[in-house]
Design a protein around this nucleic acid. Structure first.
Lengths: 347, 347
DNA sequence: GTTAGCACTCGTGAGAATGGAGTGCTAATA
DNA sequence: TATTAGCACTCCATTCTCACGAGTGCTAAC
């Protein structure tokens, strides 16, 4: 991070105090408050001078003449990068809650979102892992009834997909067996992205008169994977934003909550986060830094979790710019550890 | 419905006008407005007298002295039961939109919710069908790897469930075949609710040394069905409530939107609706009539759709009490027809 | 470099004034 | 007897004013 902020220690301390106080109260901070509640032993007048400087430098903003100062995006940024103190934070019941109903992936993720929303009081989202170059582990066709066969596809990480394929006439047992053999021997261990036309052609050739079925099944596989491109996202606590007056006027509230309901924008956020590989840890978007326009008045904190096998997903927290960053980041870190533990126990 | 309202035609007409006008404007309706915009040719004074009567009878309410009147719950009820005129309504693009991405059940339902929200401007929900006494159609166990087997369960209506079962040691091909035979011959056509201990005991006996697996699988089946008790619900347009001032103060908005996010309460609504078998068509809950306390200031209109095989789900619209009931009910009816068509084409 | 002091600004909240929509009642009318 | 015109009254919503207080910037003194 940049350290060329050109601020002396006193200015830093004042800035830090302003931000901390504002994080707590949500009200502009005046010079007198600072003079009283720091150990700098400076009069309010001196503080005022310093504050004027800080404003010139763009770290704080005066909402109007004769109001105190509030942090600017730039101020928050400096705070997050440098001024924040690590905070020990207990998330005791998180573990319990998580483990309770954690027997299905989707429930686990939903639960994670809930826990996070509860313990931070912000809006949260958890994206299901994306199957980047995930390999096929097992394919099976079975005759369900006269003209429907079901294709069961299992991928690494035990991701299961099903697809019902309608066929003109039932296939006999032997053919079925042959097709299954064919599919498994040829496709096992192959990443979906690597299934190309040549491969398909070869399979069809070997399938002989049943090439139609093969083609249908392969289509189904491709399709099934494709469909998950609109990745699933679990959310919780969207209504937490009502707790923060600066976000809860009708206009903002509607926009933000809409984003949480329709999820399209959250998906973009996830995509962006996963794409920016410069920092695989925790990312903080303050105000206009966020990739999603709707949240230009919010701060967004995201973290990426990994499942091995190239599968990764994103956890995000959305709240006001005066977010309790320390707490949020600490909580996120803890959650990541939890998730990791659970995933690796299960796989 | 009760027809013992003891109102003469003129009172009915006045009440109807009040409600209609209020539905449009959301503002209390005064006597002068009515006198002008009906063909009754009565002066405002006469109307006032009638309105006083209507108020005594409980059909309308005066928010405060010197304000116009607004309908009471009782007034709305009468309106919905008797005064409403059928309205022809086009939902042209509904069909298109529906059919677009309708290849998976969940997407279809989500899409239905969206369409409904778009064309009504209210908040909507669609519950996935519940599998009441749904029968098993097909079960298959397959070895995925050394100590995991996958159980694929297909039920009538092509509802597919999967469960990974971990086993101590791999089963050989022959055993697998035998188990599959065993399961299918014994369970096909049986409703899940009918699988009892005796049946399980018999299966275990026949499975011999692999009774452990059978028991695991059966557990899985039961579990899988069970899990769907927290039925899935798709929502859309929750933020539409911001369009109605009477619902969009922070308090109400937060409560309603929370209900839509957490879905717990919607689930109750669905359960209640499905349980009240007196009226399988469209149901209207006005204000305090609703089973869910959160929505005591709303109106809720629900409809039940059927998939045959005893599977049914619920579609619901939640909006202000001054809802455009005619439009909503018409739209709901159309949607039901659509859904029916699509379902029966697919199955 | 720091501070005390002071005039000044501006948002906030509490009344007060105003206007208008709508009512209920009474007495006159058909 | 049902309807209507007229009128006094009520109450909400809007606007305006005003005083308050928090906070500032500047200047002069330390």
């Amino acid at each position: 991070m940049k350290a060329d902020h050109g601020l002396d220690d006193r200015k830093l301390k004042i800035l830090q105090t302003i931000i901390k106080t504002y994080l707590e109260t949500g009200e502009p901070v005046g010079s007198r408050t600072i003079s009283k509640y720091t150990d700098l032993n400076l009069s309010s007048a001196t503080i005022r001078n310093e504050m004027a400087d800080l404003e010139d430098l763009g770290y704080i903003i005066q909402p109007h003449t004769s109001a105190g100062r509030i942090p600017s995006d730039k101020g928050y940024r400096l705070y997050v990068d440098m001024l924040m103190e690590d905070k020990e934070h207990e998330i005791t019941d998180m573990q319990e809650k998580m483990l309770q109903k954690a027997d299905k992936m989707e429930q686990l993720l939903q639960q994670a979102a809930r826990v996070l929303a509860n313990s931070t009081n912000y809006a949260t989202m958890v994206s299901a892992p994306t199957y980047n170059r995930n390999k096929l582990k097992f394919i099976q066709l079975s005759q369900v009834d006269a003209n429907q066969i079901i294709a069961v596809i299992v991928m690494e990480g035990n991701i299961i997909k099903n697809k019902i394929v309608t066929v003109a006439e039932p296939l006999d047992n032997e053919t079925m067996l042959k097709l299954n053999m064919l599919l498994n021997t040829n496709l096992n261990g192959i990443a979906v992205e690597d299934i190309n036309l040549g491969m398909i052609a070869r399979l069809k050739e070997q399938a002989g008169i049943h090439s139609g079925v093969i083609s249908d099944v392969l289509d189904a596989v491709a399709n099934t994977i494709q469909l998950d491109n609109d990745l699933e996202i679990y959310t919780s606590g969207a209504t937490n934003i009502f707790k923060y007056p600066e976000l809860s006027d009708k206009q903002s509230a509607q926009e933000i909550i809409s984003a949480f309901e329709e999820k399209q924008q959250l998906a973009e956020l996830v995509t962006q986060t996963l794409a920016s590989d410069e920092n695989k840890g925790i990312q903080v978007y303050i105000g206009s830094e966020t990739p999603v326009q709707t949240m230009k008045d919010c701060s967004v904190v995201t973290a990426t979790y990994e499942l091995g096998q190239g599968m990764q997903g994103t956890v995000g927290i959305i709240g006001p710019k005066r977010m309790d960053y320390e707490n949020v980041m600490k909580t996120l870190k803890t959650l990541m550890v939890e998730l990791d533990a659970i995933f690796h126990k299960k796989s």
